[in-house]
C-alpha cells in the first residue's frame, strides 16, 4: 500500500473546473516533482492534499487514513503533511526560532524547552544557526524560505509539499534553498512544484507533467527529458528549457 494515495481528485472554483481527475501515489521517502504551465492547478492540487481546499470529488489517503473523510480530525493529519509556500508565510511577530517552535508547542504540545531544542536542531540543519533570533523582516528571501522548510520539518511530517519554493527568490539565493531540499532526499517524502528543471532532473524519482487540470504524462526524469511520449510534454520541456536555460 502506498504511503500517499490520491484518487481521481476533482476541484472547481465557481464554474471552472480546475482539477479534472488527478490520480497518483507516493511511497515513503519518495521525491516527486510536478511541472506544468501557470494556472494548470498545481497549487490547487497541493492544497487539496492537505485539505486547505477540500476537493469536490475523489479521495486522498495517507498511511491508510482517508483525509477526505469529513469526520477526520484534519488538524492531526496536517501535522503529518508539511507545507512550504512560495511566499514563505512566516509569522512576522515571531523570531526564526519561534516560527519553528510554535507548532511544536501549540500543536504537538511539547514543553517550551523541548520545542526550543528541536527548533534549534532544524534551523541548524538548514544552515541558519546564526539567525535564530532574527525576525522575518531581518532575513533574506533564501533565509526566510529555509526557516519555512525548518518549520515544516520540525513537525516530523511523513511528506512535505513544496509550492514553487524558489520562485520568489533572487537567482543567487535559489541555490541555498535547493541544496537544503536536496539534503532531505530520501529522509522524507517530498512533492515539489517547481520550474527548476535542473533540480527536477537530478533529484526527482518521478516527474509529473500537469496541464489543463489533468496529468498528461509522468515518469522518471531520464525518460521525461529524453523521450517523452506525449507531444505536449515535449513542447513544454522545450519551452521551459529556453525560458529557464536548463540543460
Amino acid at each position: 500500500m502506498p504511503m500517499l494515495d490520491v484518487k481521481n481528485i476533482h476541484k472547481s472554483f465557481e464554474t471552472t473546473e480546475v482539477l479534472k481527475g488527478i490520480s497518483f501515489s507516493m511511497e515513503k521517502e519518495e521525491t516527486k516533482v510536478i511541472i506544468g504551465t501557470s494556472g494548470t492547478g498545481k497549487s490547487t492540487l497541493l492544497r487539496c492534499l492537505n485539505q486547505l481546499d477540500p476537493p469536490d470529488e475523489g479521495e486522498v489517503w495517507l498511511d491508510g487514513e482517508e483525509l477526505t473523510n469529513p469526520s477526520i480530525d484534519i488538524n492531526r493529519i496536517r501535522q503529518k503533511i508539511g507545507f512550504v509556500f512560495q511566499d514563505f508565510n512566516l509569522f512576522n511577530h515571531l523570531t526564526a526560532l519561534r516560527n519553528v517552535s510554535i507548532g511544536l508547542e501549540k500543536v504537538k504540545q511539547l514543553n517550551k524547552e523541548k520545542a526550543r531544542e528541536r527548533a534549534m536542531d532544524e534551523l541548524k540543519r538548514v544552515g541558519l544557526e546564526k539567525q535564530i533570533n532574527q525576525y522575518p523582516a531581518q532575513l533574506s528571501g533564501g533565509q526566510k524560505q529555509r526557516v519555512g522548510i525548518a518549520r515544516a520539518l520540525a513537525m516530523d511530517p511523513d511528506i512535505i509539499l513544496f509550492d514553487e519554493p524558489t520562485s520568489a527568490l533572487d537567482p543567487e539565493l535559489i541555490g541555498d534553498v535547493l541544496d537544503v531540499m536536496k539534503s532531505l532526499y530520501g529522509k522524507v517524502a517530498m512533492l515539489i512544484v517547481t520550474h527548476e528543471m535542473g533540480f527536477a532532473r537530478n533529484v526527482a524519482d518521478e516527474i509529473i507533467f500537469m496541464e489543463g487540470g489533468v496529468i498528461v504524462e509522468k515518469g522518471p526524469p531520464k525518460q521525461m527529458f529524453q523521450s517523452p511520449t506525449k507531444q505536449r510534454t515535449k513542447e513544454f520541456l522545450g519551452r521551459i528549457a529556453t525560458l529557464y536555460g536548463a540543460e
Partner: peptide, 24 residues
Amino acid sequence: GQVIAAQSLGMSKLQAIRYILLPQ
C-alpha cells in the same frame, strides 16, 4: 498566508487566531 501556514501546521482556526493573528 500566515493563517494558512498555521493551519498547515495543524493549528485549528481558533489556535491560528490566538497565537498568530492576535499578537500581531
